[in-house]
Each structure stands twice: as structure tokens, then as C-alpha cells.
């Protein structure tokens, strides 16, 4: 008889309470009537009203989404290329330098990435004249740079765990390497590419430090807006914004998880049926 791991279950409960009490508190206080963000003063949805009527928030959200969509897409293309190169090109010249270059942004403190990007863009504007002003372009460029390496990590590890014989089989059946890539490799790693894109998108949506350094006048992303508000202290409309974020992300994550789980279960069922009926 297995003993129930009481201690571990207690720690799990404690851990999840630790994870979610602050978030729940934020959600509850988003319906607070009081101006004070953490003292209960009756139920109200006025902060949602003020949030929706705030054009600045809407503009910041749109800008963030634009940057995230563009940077995640380009980062996915570049990151996938790098992942393929690292996983499949063997020992090409400059491989060590390249893999170092792909790892470094992962561990570079954001503040240093931010400052170095800013100095780079300032000097570039001074001596080359492009980009003339900082904003959408510079934030996007910086986001591509530090999110592509996350895509690379995801794609590379998926490719290393994939059965290479599948690609060899395609080659053996007459396909040249490029065609093997299109016919077999990319379809097989497409889930990793998709999750890489999602990761890059989230990183971009969430980034405040690098955006804050590389932005210019007029280009305020949502995290920059929140940052500037929060620095001044706790404000209730941020609670409302946080609630909306948590609810949106929660719905997305759980729907995705549910769909994946269902697909996995169906595959498992099909696999079992295949063995029972066909043998």
C-alpha cells in the first residue's frame, strides 16, 4: 500500500495558495468602489469603465499587439532557421560562436540588453541616420533579437528529439535536402514552431525593461504604460486591467490545454484501436 504523500500535498496547496492569492486579491479589488486600491469600499465596476474610456490604454494595447505580432513572426522565422542550423548542419565553421550567440541573449540581464540596444540605436541614428527616431521600429528590432533565441531553443530541442530516420527516408526516396525540409522536417516540427511563436509573442507582450529603453516619444506599449502608472503607486484601474489580462490568458491557456488534451486522448484511443482490430 502506498502512503499518501501528505507533506507534498500540503506543500502543493501552500504553493498554489501563494501563486493565486495575490491574483485573486487583485481580481476582488478590481471591483472595489474605493479609491484606495486595497481597502474594501463596496462593489463597483467603475474601474472597468474608466479603463475602457481611457483611450491611452487602448492605443497602448494596439501598439503592443502590433509589435508582438510582427516581432514574434520575424523572430519565429529567424529562430527556426537558427534551430535547424544548430540541430542539422553538424559541425559547420563558426558553430561554437553561433551557439554562443544564440545562448547569450537568454542569460543577458534585460537591463544590459536594453542599454546596449539603446546605445546601438542612438549611435546608428547619429552616424547612419536610421532609424531616425526611436519607437515602433526600434522596439520591434530589439524584441526580435531577444525573443528569437527562445524560439531557437524550442525548435532545436524538438529537432534533436525527432527521429532523424524520417528525414533520411525522404532523402532515400529521392528528395533533395531542401525538399526534405519542406515535405518532412517543417511539418514534423510545426508544433514546436507554433509554441515558439507563442513564446515570442508572450515575451514581447510582457516586456517592459527592453521596451522602456528602446522606445521613444509617443510609442507607449501596454507594459510601459503600466510601468509608468505603477511606479507612482497602486492605482485601482490597474487591478481591472490585471483582471482582464488574467481572465483572457486563463481562457486561452485552458482552451488550448483542453484541445491538446482531447487530441492526445483521441490519438491514444486510435492507437489502441489499431492494435486491437488490425493485428
Amino acid at each position: 500500500m502506498r502512503r499518501r504523500p501528505t507533506f507534498l500535498i500540503t506543500m502543493l496547496c501552500f504553493g498554489f495558495a501563494f501563486f493565486y492569492i495575490p491574483i485573486l486579491s487583485m481580481i476582488v479589488f478590481s471591483f472595489n468602489n474605493s479609491r484606495l486600491a486595497t481597502v474594501w469600499g463596496g462593489f463597483s465596476t467603475k474601474w472597468y469603465g474608466s479603463l475602457f474610456s481611457n483611450a491611452q490604454v487602448g492605443r497602448a494595447l494596439v501598439l503592443s499587439l502590433e509589435i508582438a505580432l510582427l516581432s514574434a513572426t520575424i523572430a519565429t522565422i529567424l529562430g527556426t532557421m537558427a534551430g535547424i542550423a544548430l540541430a542539422r548542419f553538424g559541425r559547420f565553421r563558426g558553430r561554437t560562436a553561433f551557439s554562443g550567440l544564440v545562448t547569450a541573449p537568454l542569460i543577458m540581464p534585460e537591463v544590459i540588453t536594453g542599454i546596449s540596444s539603446l546605445i546601438f540605436f542612438i549611435l546608428l541614428a547619429n552616424y547612419v541616420g536610421w532609424p531616425a527616431s526611436r519607437g515602433f521600429t526600434t522596439i520591434t528590432l530589439a524584441h526580435i533579437t531577444f525573443s528569437m533565441v527562445f524560439v531557437t531553443t524550442v525548435v532545436q530541442s524538438r529537432m534533436l528529439s525527432a527521429d532523424r530516420a524520417i528525414e533520411e527516408a525522404a532523402m532515400d526516396l529521392g528528395s533533395r535536402p531542401w525538399q526534405v525540409m519542406v515535405d518532412v522536417t517543417l511539418p514534423v516540427i510545426s508544433p514546436a514552431i507554433l509554441s515558439g511563436w507563442l513564446l515570442a509573442f508572450t515575451i514581447s507582450m510582457d516586456d517592459v525593461v527592453i521596451s522602456n529603453f528602446t522606445t521613444g516619444p509617443g510609442a507607449t506599449t501596454l507594459p510601459i504604460l503600466i510601468w509608468s502608472k505603477v511606479k507612482l503607486g497602486v492605482t485601482p484601474d490597474i487591478n481591472a486591467l490585471a483582471t482582464l489580462t488574467v481572465v483572457t490568458v486563463g481562457i486561452c491557456v485552458f482552451t488550448a490545454g483542453w484541445l491538446l488534451n482531447r487530441a492526445e486522448k483521441r490519438r491514444e484511443l486510435e492507437r489502441r484501436l489499431a492494435y486491437q482490430i488490425n493485428e
Binding site: F19, I21, P22, I23, S25, M26, F29, A37, T38, T202, M205, D206, V208, P223, I226, W227, V230, G233, V234, I238, N239, L241, A242, T245, V246, V249, G250, C252, V253
Partner: peptide
């Protein structure tokens, strides 16, 4: 899940608490 929500807002939650 918290990892996918905003980092800034998670810090903010504790400022309130």
C-alpha cells in the same frame, strides 16, 4: 498560467498586498 500573464502585474499584485 502566471508565467503567461504579465510579469509587471504579478509584481503589482504584491505591491497591493
Amino acid at each position: 498560467l502566471p508565467f503567461w500573464t504579465s510579469f509587471l502585474l504579478r509584481v503589482y499584485a504584491w505591491m497591493g498586498l
